[in-house]
């Protein structure tokens, strides 16, 4: 569990590194603004419980950091460095994700209450939020190395949660079927990317797909 959270932190650090390296080169080439908007929506709808329950100082501060980073990323892409954002290739129709995910969260949830539905929505949406980014890579056929590192850690942290959930079920009898199924879906969506990352990026090549 700690490992999962450490990697979660790590993906945010990589994200920040990505932003800072972009600041240096004034370029956001290859990053999907739509995926980043979806992630901002994911963290906003999931962490509304900041106002209702307190788990630990760590938990609350990480939630605030996640929300802050998500909106900072969106701001940088659409406002500050709009000129270098490649919107022409970022053409995934997000309504095809948000509408079905919204519908599903009303139908399959733990409790039919506003906060619980929004939490379920965020879990489902997170599992597919990377699709605009993967679509963009498949469209342009390549990605900056820093983008691929960022995507790798974004995928890795949910994959590590799978280990955590197995552990918690085994030792604490705790499980949350919605989170587990969504986590499995999210990890599966990343598999193709993981394969490319290991076979290409780690061997020092820039990720580029055959035309």
């Amino acid at each position: 569990r700690l490992l999962g959270q450490l990697f979660e932190m790590y993906q945010f650090i990589v994200r920040l590194l990505f932003i800072f390296s972009s600041l240096c080169f004034f370029s956001l080439t290859g990053i999907s603004g739509k995926s980043q908007i979806l992630f901002a929506l994911v963290f906003t709808t999931r962490y509304l419980d900041l106002f209702t329950i307190f788990i630990s100082l760590y938990n609350s501060s990480m939630k605030i950091i996640y929300i802050g980073c998500a909106y900072a990323t969106v701001y940088l892409i659409y406002m500050k460095f709009k000129a270098t954002y490649d919107g022409n290739h970022d053409t995934f129709r997000v309504e095809f994700l948000v509408v079905p995910v919204g519908g599903l969260s009303f139908l399959v949830n733990h409790d039919f209450s506003p906060l619980e539905i929004l939490w379920t929505f965020s879990i489902y949406l997170e599992s597919v939020a990377i699709l605009p980014q993967l679509f963009m890579i498949s469209k342009t056929g390549e990605a900056e190395t820093i983008t691929t590192h960022y995507l790798f850690f974004l995928g890795l942290y949910r994959a590590l949660y799978l280990v955590n959930w197995f552990w918690r079920y085994y030792f604490e009898g705790f499980f949350d079927l919605i989170a587990i199924v969504a986590g499995v879906v999210q990890t599966i969506l990343y598999c193709d990317f993981f394969y490319l990352y290991v076979t290409k990026v780690l061997k020092g090549k820039k990720l580029s797909l055959p035309a």
Binding site: R1, I53, I55, H110, D111, W119, N164, F174, D176
Partner: peptide
């Protein structure tokens, strides 16, 4: 489902 699992994960 009758019980809502605790939300202690991020």
């Amino acid at each position: 489902e009758d019980t809502v699992p605790e939300k202690d994960e991020l």
